[in-house]
Amino acid sequence: MSKQAIGPIRRSFAPWDDPAAKPLIEYRGVTKRFGDFVAVENLDLKIYTREFFALLGPSGCGKTTLMRMLAGFENPTQGDVILDGKSVVGVPPYRRPVNMMFQSYALFPHMNVEQNIGFGLKQDGMPKADIAVRVAEMLKLVKLEPFAKRKPHQLSGGQRQRVALARSLAKRPKVLLLDEPLGALDKKLRQETQFELMDLQQELGMTFLVVTHDQEEAMTVADRIAVMDKGKIIQVATPSEIYEQPNSRYVASFIGDVNMFEGKTVPTENGITRIECGALGMAIESEGGHKPAAGEAAWFAVRPEKVRLTSDRPADDDGVNAVAGEVWDIAYLGDMSIFHVKLANGQVMTATRANISRIVDKPIGWDDKVWLSWDRNAGVVLQG
């Protein structure tokens, strides 16, 4: 598959929207208990062939347990795990068509790169000539041909990560499981490797399932994300849907930065929801998200990059949702600046500005009086 085809394929790839599509992986009513502790509770999930799927959540939310049940290291207390149309509950790990890449990489220190990659193939009894061919393919795939004879301690962190990836792929599993695969890499290398993983997954046409607590990593690599909390899946959607249309306060606050306001709805019309926020002394108008009945408690969430920051009060057309405040903190990050603005009620609101010009005529500084405003379609209404 050519790399030129990767973009169009990813844009049109959405088997979860096809009622006739059969999932490759399915969790059916799965519960996993460790004594009195419920790690996963009555969970249903479908993952499709060639999907890059991410399980995202904080430590202890159940995401790793979910992966381990697919790998065969744990069995569900209740429910079933289906892989390619067959239950794998009770099937030992070595008999499952999956392979797992661990966060620690777990490379053999006394073996060189090609020996590490070929270890699983040797254990399976593959002929030496075939092992040599497969290992050569893997070395080329992960761009480590010049390092074939080196030991793990002679490699950088990124190179060791590639060896572990090549070893996991050498047996050509139907599903590759990645447990916090980039956690040991520095930020720049982690970002580079994320795109390499995406390209590699598309080139191989395989199904990848990644466990991570890094929201940026999940948003970058995944076709879909399952956001988890306390053993349950809160929302499953594409990265853009998770970010722009969160289904709860938990998802909105877990993914990215967000400003939230609590209030009660008042009668609406023309698809516009109005939330009376007593603390702000104003009503917020919104066109997106949940449509609560009048008088119902609700929350409004708006991302910092959707908020305009101006020295002067916005014009009437721009000032439907506008509130005054005072600049409390500023963080300059090079490509953008983050402003924390303290409102009259003491609440702090965040706005970001892209630094598109090197010269600013009237820069906004600490203690300046400013206005924050946003469009009706900039945020979403969430249930209280």
Results as ranks from 00 to 15, higher is better:
Ile234Gly: 00
Ile242Asp: 06
Phe147Met: 05
Glu305Trp: 14
Gly79Asn: 09
Met336Ile: 08
Ala351Tyr: 01
Pro15Thr: 10
Gln115His: 11
Gln245Cys: 11
Glu145Gln: 15
Val211Ile: 15
Ala148His: 14
Met126Ser: 03
Lys143Leu: 04
Ala252Tyr: 10
Glu326Leu: 05
Glu196Tyr: 02
Lys188Pro: 00
Arg50Gln: 13
Ser2Cys: 02
Ser357Asp: 14
Gln201Ser: 06
Asn42Val: 05
Leu107Tyr: 01
Asp186His: 01
Ile330Gly: 04
Gly289Ser: 05
Leu144Ala: 09
Asp317Ser: 12
Leu121Thr: 05
Asp375Asn: 14
His110Glu: 10
Ala351Gly: 10
Val81Gly: 03
Ala226Leu: 11
Tyr27His: 02
His290Val: 14
Val348Gly: 07
Lys140Arg: 14
Leu280Pro: 10
Gln159Leu: 09
Val113Thr: 15
Gly35Ala: 04
Glu269Gly: 05
Leu169Tyr: 01
Val135Cys: 07
Met126Arg: 14
Gly263Gln: 03
Val89Ile: 08
Leu121Asp: 09
Thr352Tyr: 09
Asp214Gln: 04
Asn116Ile: 13
Glu244Pro: 00
Ser168Lys: 01
Ala54Asn: 08
Pro152Ser: 11
Leu139Val: 13
Gly57Phe: 11
Tyr94Ile: 11
Lys264His: 13
Lys128Ser: 11
Leu144Tyr: 04
Trp299Gln: 06
Arg95Lys: 15
Val210Leu: 05
Asp214Thr: 06
Asp316His: 07
Phe300Val: 05
Val258Met: 07
Ala132Val: 08
Glu326Pro: 00
Asp361Lys: 13
Glu26Arg: 12
Gly205Tyr: 01
Pro19Asp: 10
Met67Gln: 13
Leu141Asn: 07
Glu137His: 07
Ala331Asp: 09
Thr238Gln: 07
Asn42Met: 03
His290Lys: 01
Glu196Leu: 00
Asp124Pro: 00
Gly7Val: 12
